[in-house]
Write a protein that binds this DNA or RNA. Structure first.
Lengths: 254, 254
DNA sequence: CCAAATAAGTACGATTCCGCACATACGTTT
DNA sequence: AAACGTATGTGCGGAATCGTACTTATTTGG
């Protein structure tokens, strides 16, 4: 299972916004940069498939690569010495993995795990460092996303402190659902417990309540959202707040 | 009380690292930038005294000024619609207030309050925006601090989720103590409750325990640290972790 | 096809924290 | 000195969550 953690595929650098193998670029940052910067960056990108629960970056290690998620979803986790963890950020196709690199840092104290089978374009750090000075728009996009993710994490921080498991679970499911594009998500209660910073059995009870209310169904390792509107009511305000922040900030410039 | 919230003093722009009025610059960012960039920035800086519980920035409002804290301490808070709040970051003389500005954002969803009488150098946003393109070192410093604060907030997020009031209170006192330089801090239990995201009465009980153990004493509105080593034992690991992260990251560059 | 591994349901006492309320103590103002 | 506002101590029942453990169900692997 942990054998070929980085199962990379034929590296066919996309010449423009879409590469030759039909691996259409969906990552919003890659789509947003001007063509001339794309010419700098794209040849160095390697298309990859990322598997469920694959660890893109382990807390404390040196960051070797930066990943532009194309689809799928990554979770950013704070891991405590005793092994407990809490999710502090979600990264989808609107962002990238490897924030500290942009600011000249080499490591990160956070773990990033893939929540569902995903694809990404990878670039190794030295290459990116070489390219970055010549790509001001790219750099700006990366910085902006870092800031947005930071803001998101502050809201999650408050949420994790102030709201109970049921509300947080509902919020979490909604937030992930949005970035995956599919009502069924591969999730175990154990995994959700790590995200929410709580026991698996607490997740079990909360999920049971949401199920009985007709909002979700789930089988072994899979959760399906049945009634998104109802689920949104069960979630805490944080869901709405993060939504609004995201859209505000995406429009907001100097 | 809320009359002259911004009691600014004679603006004597420091010509170099120290201005003429003996208001020595302690802010690490201002100290770190090269002289030529200082020449750009310093004339626009306004020396200010900031008072206890003064709100430097209210959540959701447009950011009008950026503050380089010279001494004293600011807390960054996430505020919920129901008024509850949680601290998600601490800013001292190593940083500045107004992070989003650096990335071209105009607002912030976070409140920043002063924890004790402080001094700062203020610059208004349009001016800073004008100066910034010509001060790459300054910009880099600001960006780096934004990243460090973001990392700090992720650790606090996990801490607020996983650790109980007593541990968090001990951690909080230590973290503030370090950035203030004085064993006595002007703190009410109500205020601490807002920082820790808990009830005042929970703070009261936790403080009582720390007091009985000889770690702190406190009177109406003041807390004094008596035994820092003991207090560090009572605090959760997060105290050490944040300490280490800070020093690691301050040395770490590309 | 059976064994082993993994996922989920459930239970229980202990603990922490909540919301609220009231009493007391201190400090400032008049 | 008295009165007021503010800070703190304390108590109560109830809710949420914890730590742990055991059971059952499903999937995977030999």
């Amino acid at each position: 299972m942990a054998k070929s953690r980085y199962r990379s595929f034929k590296a066919v650098p996309p010449a423009a916004k879409q590469d030759g193998d039909g691996k259409r670029i969906s990552n919003l940052i890659l789509l947003a940069i001007p063509q001339q910067e794309g010419k700098q960056l794209f040849p160095s990108l390697e298309f990859m498939r990322l598997r469920l629960h694959q660890v893109l970056h382990e807390a404390g290690e040196t960051i070797k690569s930066v990943y532009f998620l194309n689809n799928g979803l990554g979770s950013v986790l704070t891991v405590m010495p005793d092994g407990k963890s809490v999710e502090v950020g979600l990264i989808g196709k609107e962002g990238f993995v490897g924030l500290p690199i942009v600011f000249g840092f080499k490591t990160s104290p956070l773990r990033v795990v893939i929540q569902c089978d995903a694809t990404a374009y990878r670039v190794d750090v030295p290459t990116l460092r070489k390219i970055l000075p010549e790509c001001p728009q790219l750099e700006k996009q990366l910085q902006r996303f870092a800031m947005i993710l930071g803001m998101q994490s502050t809201q999650l921080a408050a949420c994790n402190r102030l709201h109970d498991v049921e509300e947080r679970l509902a919020r979490w499911l909604l937030m992930s659902h949005e970035r995956i594009g599919g009502d069924t998500m591969p999730l175990t209660q154990e995994f959700l417990g790590q995200m929410l910073g709580t026991r698996r059995s607490s997740v079990s009870m909360a999920a049971s309540i949401l199920h009985k209310a007709g909002m979700i169904t789930y089988t072994r390792g899979n959760v399906t959202i049945m009634d998104k509107a109802k689920l949104a009511e069960a979630a805490c305000d944080c869901y709405q707040i993060i939504q609004e922040q995201k859209s505000n900030w995406q429009n907001e410039t100097r």
